[in-house]
Design a protein around this nucleic acid. Structure first.
Lengths: 236, 236
DNA sequence: AATATTTTTTGTCAAAACGACAAAAACACT
DNA sequence: AGTGTTTTTGTCGTTTTGACAAAAAATATT
C-alpha cells in the first residue's frame, strides 16, 4: 500500500540528485523504492513540499533526511510536470542537483540506504551502472527519473565550463591538485582533456580572478613528481 | 474580493513573460491587476495549473487566453516558491518566457489588456518603463514578479550567445537583415556590438551550419546601401 | 550632373586564445 | 646511478577576437 493522494488536487514535490566524483567518474545516489508505485525501482530521493517551506527549504530538509550533514551545494535544475509522471496522483516535481565532495560523502554512506551509481557521461544519453557493474536500463528507474537524470547531466556539462561547480565537488580541506580538478571535468564532460591546456584554462578562469591560489606546498607522494596544491578561496 | 484559496494546500501556477524586441529595445507585456492581492500593480499573466495538464500545457492555454494566436517560442525559466510570494495562499509558480516577433505581436496588441513595458537591460538590474516613459519601481510590480523579470533577463543575456533565441524574435516572413538581428542582440544584452565583428559571429554560428542562408535580394530602401537579406531555415 | 551623406558591407592587422605536442622537473624504486 | 612515473612548463602554428579603417551602394543636396 502507498500513501493516498487526493485525486482532485495538484501536489508539489522536490527531487534531489546527489552527485559526486571519485577517480574521474561521476556518481549519483539512488535508493530502491520500497512502496508502490514503482516498488523495487531505483529512484531519486523525493519529498512533498510542506505548506510553510519553500522548495529550497524542502530540498534542505530532504538533504538532512537522506544524508544528514552533507552540506551539499544545491541548485535548481528543472521542474517536471507531466500529468502521468506519478501514478499516485498529480505530482509536480522541482528537481535540484546537490554536489558533494566524495570524501565527505564517504563518511555518510554507511548510514544511508541510498546506493552509488556510476554515470557514464561519454555518450549522448548517460548510462547508469550499479555497484556490481550491472547496467540500469531506463525502465529500471522510477517515474520520469531517467529523464531528470539526463537533464541534469546535460546541465552540468553545460555549466562546468563557465561556472565554479567543479570546485563544489572538491574535497573539504580546500586543498587540491590540478589533476584532481581535471578528473572532475572529465567525469562530468565524459571526455579527457589535455593536461597542459587544462591548466591554462583553469588559471585564466580561477587563478587570475583570485578564486583559487597556488600554494607553495606539494602533495604527499605515491609516485612521480609531487603535485602542487591549490587552495579554493571560497568567499571570493 | 479575490478568489479564495484553501489554506492547507499548495497550489501550482504558471507565469508567462511575453517578450519582444522593437527598434533595439526589449519589451515585456504586463497587465494591471484588477483583483486583490496586489490590485493596481503591474503583473505577469498567470494561471493555475489544471489537474490534467502539464505546466507546458498550462503555459499554452495561458498564451491562448492572453494573446490568442501568438505562437510564441516558450521555454521554462525557473520555479519560484517562496512561502509568502502570494498573499492568497501557498502558490508556487513555474515561470516561462515567451518570445514573439514584434510584427506578429503588433497585430495582437489591440485585443489584449496587457501593455508593453520597455526593459532597459544595460544596468545590473533591469529597469522597466511604461508607455508614457514613467519608470516602474520594483514595488510597483505584483508578487515577486520583479525578481522573476530579473531572472529572465539574466537568462536571456546568458543564452543569446550560444542558442538561437535571437532568431525567435525575428519577424515571421523569415527574411531579415544583419542590422535587425544585431538590434535584437543589443536589446537583450544592453550593449552595442561592433557591426563587423557581429557579422562574423553570426556567420560562424548560424550560416556555416546552415541555420541561416544569405539571399541574393536586398531590402527596400530608405537611405544608404541596401542591406542583404537572410533567411532563417527554421527546420535545421 | 556632380558631390555629399547615409548605411551596409568588406577588409586589415595586431593581440589573444586554442590545440596539439614536446621537453623538463621532481619524485620513488631498484 | 639509472629507470619509470607523474606533474609541470614550454613551444609553435592555427584560429579567434577586438578595434579600426576602407569600400560599396544607395539616397539626398546643390
Amino acid at each position: 500500500m502507498h500513501e493516498l493522494l487526493e485525486k482532485d488536487r495538484v501536489y508539489a514535490a522536490v527531487d534531489l540528485l546527489f552527485l559526486t566524483v571519485r577517480e574521474r567518474r561521476l556518481y549519483l545516489l539512488l535508493s530502491r523504492r520500497e512502496n508502490e508505485p514503482c516498488a523495487g525501482y531505483a529512484a531519486l530521493p523525493g519529498r512533498m513540499i510542506g505548506l510553510s517551506e519553500s522548495a529550497e527549504e524542502t530540498a534542505a530538509v530532504l538533504e538532512n533526511e537522506m544524508l544528514p550533514g552533507a552540506g551539499a551545494y544545491m541548485e535548481q535544475l528543472y521542474t517536471f510536470s507531466d500529468v502521468h509522471r506519478d501514478a499516485r496522483g498529480r505530482v509536480i516535481t522541482i528537481a535540484y542537483f546537490a554536489l558533494i565532495p566524495y570524501q565527505r560523502l564517504e563518511r555518510l554512506l554507511p548510514s544511508t540506504k541510498m546506493r552509488l551509481y556510476e554515470i557514464d557521461t561519454r555518450a549522448e544519453e548517460p548510462v547508469l551502472t550499479d555497484e556490481e557493474g550491472k547496467r540500469l536500463a531506463k525502465s529500471d528507474l522510477a517515474f520520469d527519473h531517467a529523464r531528470i537524470i539526463q537533464t541534469c547531466v546535460n546541465r552540468l556539462k553545460g555549466k562546468i565550463g563557465y561556472t565554479d561547480i567543479s570546485l563544489r565537488l572538491l574535497s573539504d580541506d580546500k586543498r587540491f591538485t590540478m589533476v584532481e580538478l581535471e578528473g572532475i571535468f572529465e567525469a562530468v564532460t565524459g571526455q579527457e582533456a589535455d593536461k597542459s591546456n587544462f591548466r591554462r584554462f583553469i588559471r585564466s578562469r580561477f587563478e587570475d580572478s583570485g578564486i583559487i591560489t597556488a600554494l607553495r606546498q606539494t602533495e604527499k607522494q605515491t609516485r612521480g613528481r609531487p603535485a602542487l596544491l591549490y587552495r579554493w578561496n571560497r568567499e571570493a
